[in-house]
């Protein structure tokens, strides 16, 4: 599986010269395997992905973790949606009352957006999922609800022994009991356990998280403890705070890694990164 990052910023697109290194586009990650194209989230990064998608790709699966704006705002600007020869599937979390289709229509309608879903040349195929397991071609997908306001899924993608987990918005601090000593009482554990690569929310410094408990995001130290508990091989810190510059992000990573000896790799995720998992 080849994983490409098209956006790893959290909450709000925040381009600017002081953010060139890690990027300003919001969540969007592409997973390619042969001709299978899976896109995780439709943040602002999906616009560039759509503009550069290979013309041989005739089917795209967009897996939405949840419907907060920073994860859906790019959908209407994804050019393949306007190409009748490309079949688009949109997968996303079930809610208690309102269907996924109805919730998506709120975005694809005035005054938020001029084009309605049924005005597209080919209506996307909508798949509502919850704690689910299914196949997209050769890739096994597991989805599970995780701790974040509103219905929110984490995704685990695997092919053979290669495993990748994606949880861009996840508040471990609220979603775990006796953390990090009881994996079975920790939100997201089944999604992330033993993966080769984990993209995980790390929006806040520990000192920043104190004032933002309940907002749905994790502090970096919780994310490190979670990755350790899940025995991941590589952790990419994701969903960077829109206010954090490149220099601040590098400094935060340096601070939290100081005097820590971990048996897995840790990096700040950057837009444009490519990972091959085999």
């Amino acid at each position: 599986m080849r994983v490409t990052v098209w956006g790893c910023r959290g909450s709000l697109p925040s381009p600017g010269p002081e953010k060139n290194l890690f990027g300003g586009n919001t969540s969007c990650v592409q997973v390619m395997h042969n001709n299978t194209c899976i896109v995780l989230d439709g943040g602002s990064g999906i616009q560039r992905l759509g503009a550069t998608l290979h013309q041989d790709i005739k089917e795209v699966h967009i897996l939405l973790t949840h419907l907060h704006l920073d994860h859906t705002m790019g959908l209407g600007f994804f050019l393949p949606l306007y190409n009748p020869s490309v079949k688009i599937h949109i997968w996303g979390p079930a809610a208690i009352e309102e269907s996924l289709l109805r919730r998506l229509r709120r975005y694809f309608s005035p005054p938020l957006f001029p084009v309605r879903l049924n005005e597209l040349p080919l209506h996307p195929i909508i798949h509502e999922i919850d704690n689910s397991e299914f196949m997209i071609d050769d890739i096994k997908i597991q989805s599970g609800y995780i701790c974040h306001p509103g219905p929110t899924l984490g995704y685990r993608l695997s092919f053979g022994n290669a495993k990748f987990a994606y949880m861009p918005d996840h508040e471990i601090g609220l979603g775990a009991a006796n953390f990090p000593n009881e994996p079975d009482w920790t939100s997201g554990y089944e999604i992330a356990r033993d993966v080769d690569l984990l993209f995980h929310d790390a929006q806040y410094r520990p000192s920043e998280y104190v004032d933002k408990v309940g907002w749905g995001h994790s502090s970096i130290d919780d994310t490190l403890a979670f990755a350790k508990m899940c025995k991941v091989k590589k952790l990419e810190l994701f969903h960077h705070d829109p206010g954090h510059t490149d220099i601040q992000l590098q400094s935060i990573l340096h601070e939290v890694m100081l005097n820590k000896q971990l048996d897995f790799e840790v990096s700040m995720c950057a837009e444009g990164n490519v990972y091959d998992i085999s």
């Binding site: 599970g144 701790c147 979603g175 775990a176 009991a177 994996p183 079975d184 009482w185 089944e190």
Partner: peptide
């Protein structure tokens, strides 16, 4: 042990 559902984890919290 399999992971508890998020609703149960939050209930315990």
């Amino acid at each position: 042990m399999p992971q508890q559902p998020i609703e149960i984890i939050l209930s315990r919290q």
